[in-house]
């Protein structure tokens, strides 16, 4: 009905957070964003892209099923008072579930990325062959 509104709200918040972090990283890097300093804005970018992508595509699905319309009150469930409670229940269960699942997957992605970035590549040193 309107479950995608929860990830949409999260996407707005995380986009603002990403912009703030990006500005802080630029200040820390003396106006330039170096790769090491920019890692958190990059990681937040992954979450934002997943959230916005999901929200845009789910919005299409809701329009397709006639749950969202381009005129006020935009949500068809709002036109009938009997549908408002089930809509709010769906937002609280499925909507929150969607946002939590995407965020959990993002946390796993960040943990893997952090673990990978800590691994120092081992350079094999070949002894120099020389002499007769």
């Amino acid at each position: 009905m309107a479950c995608f509104l929860v990830p949409a709200g999260e996407a707005i918040v995380t986009t603002v957070v990403q912009k703030v972090v990006e500005n802080q990283e630029k200040k820390a890097g003396g106006g330039k964003t170096n790769q090491a300093a920019a890692k958190w804005s990059q990681r937040l970018g992954w979450l934002n892209k997943m959230l916005w992508g999901g929200v845009i595509l789910l919005a299409l699905e809701h329009v397709w099923h006639g749950e969202v319309v381009p005129w006020p009150p935009f949500l068809t469930a709002m036109q009938n008072p009997a549908d408002v409670a089930p809509m709010l229940h769906e937002i609280a269960t499925i909507g929150v579930g969607m946002a939590v699942l995407v965020t959990v997957v993002w946390v796993v992605m960040v943990i893997i990325a952090e673990a990978k970035s800590r691994v120092v590549p081992q350079v094999k040193v070949k002894p120099v062959e020389g002499g007769a």
């Binding site: 997943m50 916005w52 699905e61 969607m98 699942l101 995407v102």
Partner: peptide
């Protein structure tokens, strides 16, 4: 292409949650 990939993953995860809960 990374952006497109994350768009699809985001939607996939959201629909997965929707389908499982429903």
């Amino acid at each position: 292409v990374g952006l497109l990939s994350l768009f699809f993953w985001g939607a996939t995860l959201m629909w997965l949650a929707d389908h499982v809960m429903a």
